[in-house]
Nucleic acid binder design. Structure first.
Lengths: 329, 329
DNA sequence: CTCGGCCATGTTAACGATCACAACAACCGT
DNA sequence: ACGGTTGTTGTGATCGTTAACATGGCCGAG
């Protein structure tokens, strides 16, 4: 195929290859002739042939859980866009379930797909470790959120700061303390939010109520809300994500607890509909897409020596979005 | 690399290749020896080399809009899973915007990625056509939702039936007529829902109110709700998706209109949090993942002659989920 | 017992690109 | 005028795999 171009341009294959790879030592008029021939033939380099000889593919692999949820889905989008901008394609795999075997399967399937590097978007340390261990040794990898150790680079939302901002906001409104509905116990991002919440309360010298554990779903938020509704004296709740906050709002509504008059609620994620809940939800907005971008930058730093800014900042700091689910006490 | 296995097993490369490709004419003990050698060396076939000689990659391409939205994201998940089950990888591209040039770019970028076939998950006919035209001729393609013509196979949710079920449900509850908040005008799926809504009303001999046009977002649903709140006598609204229904609920709440006592609302999609809105949303549930699966089956029928059930049913019929946002009049 | 045909396996040439090296020209300074 | 650079182009080998064809052993039919 490259031969067709070469023949039409009246040069050798090698010269076409040089034009293709922007090698400097090609005379301008030769280059033009080649480019013209490529255009006329609608030539596209065969990436498999190129990958074969270069011993390196133009594909990045991603293993992701929960790829339908707003946060991960947005990160995936960021990964895809950033990769494309650097000339890489992305292939995304989602395990059927959280089982060990399912994760190993998925990683194996990725391993056989000739990828140049891997991004693991997994929420739990155990799962990430399993996935990474099942990958061929030596394949560059970056973790989003959960990294097994410092050996593999990680990019994450600054959950601690996010939680801190949320709690601080509530304390500043005059609430005595803040309850917390957390994500699953085995998720690092969930635990980091718990840590941030607890630390902020302790620093302010407030009592720390027990954590109510959820699983990110609206349903679990609803159940948590029913539970909290039973306890008197609660005035502020920080939910670890917006979907649980949504369930919380529903439960409080059902029990006749008014938000924000009786209880203030803060979420996390700023899902697109957060501003249209009843009432509009005050929440923490992390830039999930940026996380994806950083993951790609970091990964490509490992994959490709020529990449410059190999050391991207590993934390993305979220901001507070004030709406109407919080009020002064 | 295949050579290492061959050496260890004491056979030729070709025999290893035969084992790899499940060629029948290999003696059982030879096969065992080869398999054992592969296991010992942790051998993985180089897909680029294979693709090169077979003139065919193991990758499917997907171009998708709105890949963060629940519906498309779930379809993407279905595509990924189905593809993996058949030994294909999937690479997903999302254009930066809806601009023509952005779409052309994306398609071009896919074209250069050595994919065996393409699924176009685009909502508008124009965009789908643009994308398909920018793809190399002869590349098998399947459209989800919008197909430019019968030349390229399409897989879709049976929007018409979905809308019909929604409207029927409301009419059976005794509502005189049903208002409709639609998706964007240029989206075929949105228009199909409009058609189903209108047809059902007409068949029942009811008057057809003007369509209120939204853009899928909660915000547009909210605006639509404020608009509808001004008009007296409205008792039932069918929103073209759950996010707009959510905005609608908020607007009605703000205006003191009770759901379902004053107005009944039906959504479309059954997003996971639909059951936890205020009130829990009655909605239409389409199996988005199934759409993805069917798209892959259909595409592979085109790509790979040996695939059997090339003719998958092109429609996925949704069902009604009754919750508390609808009531008898 | 001999020949055609099947079975198991090996040998060689692709696939489409890049890389290392060779070749040749033009230009430089001495 | 000549050796040494520098710049431009071509040649042949190579990446890991599969396809096409070749080989040789064994079996059964004539």
């Amino acid at each position: 195929m490259i031969g067709d171009v070469a023949r039409l341009a009246g040069v050798s294959n090698q010269t076409v290859s040089r034009v293709l790879n922007e090698h400097p030592n090609v005379r301008q008029d030769t280059r033009d002739r080649v480019l013209d021939a490529m255009r006329r033939l609608d030539y596209r380099p065969n990436l498999m042939a190129r990958g074969l000889v270069r011993q390196k593919s133009h594909m990045l692999g991603v293993i992701s859980f929960d790829s339908v949820l707003f946060g991960p889905a947005t990160t995936l989008l960021g990964i895809g866009r950033a990769a494309r901008a650097r000339g890489y394609g992305v292939t995304i795999l989602t395990p059927e379930s959280g089982d060990r075997s399912s994760i190993v399967d998925t990683a194996a399937s990725l391993a056989s797909q000739a990828v140049a590097g891997v991004v693991v978007v997994f929420p739990s340390q155990a799962a990430t470790t399993t996935a990474l261990l099942s990958l061929p040794a030596g394949l560059p990898a970056v973790a989003v959120e959960a990294a097994p150790d410092d050996a593999i680079p990680a990019v994450r939302i600054d959950q601690l700061t996010g939680a801190r901002i949320a709690v601080q906001h509530l304390l500043e409104l005059g609430h005595e303390t803040v309850w917390h509905v957390s994500g699953p116990r085995d998720r690092l991002d969930a635990q980091a939010r718990v840590d941030g919440w607890r630390a902020t309360l302790e620093e302010a010298g407030r009592t720390t109520p027990p954590v109510v554990v959820g699983d990110w779903s609206a349903e679990s938020g609803y159940r948590a809300g029913l539970e909290l509704a039973e306890r008197p004296g609660i005035t502020a709740v920080f939910a670890a994500n917006d979907h649980m906050a949504l369930g919380l709002l529903r439960a409080f509504h059902e029990r006749g607890i008014r938000v924000p008059e009786d209880v203030s609620v803060v979420g996390f994620d700023d899902i697109p509909e957060a501003g249209y809940l009843i009432p509009p939800l005050t929440t923490i907005r992390p830039d999930h897409e940026e996380v994806g971008r950083l993951a790609v930058t970091t990964l490509l730093g490992l994959v490709d020596e020529t990449e410059q800014d190999a050391t991207a900042p590993p934390y993305v700091v979220p901001t507070l979005v004030r709406r109407r689910s919080t009020a002064a006490r």
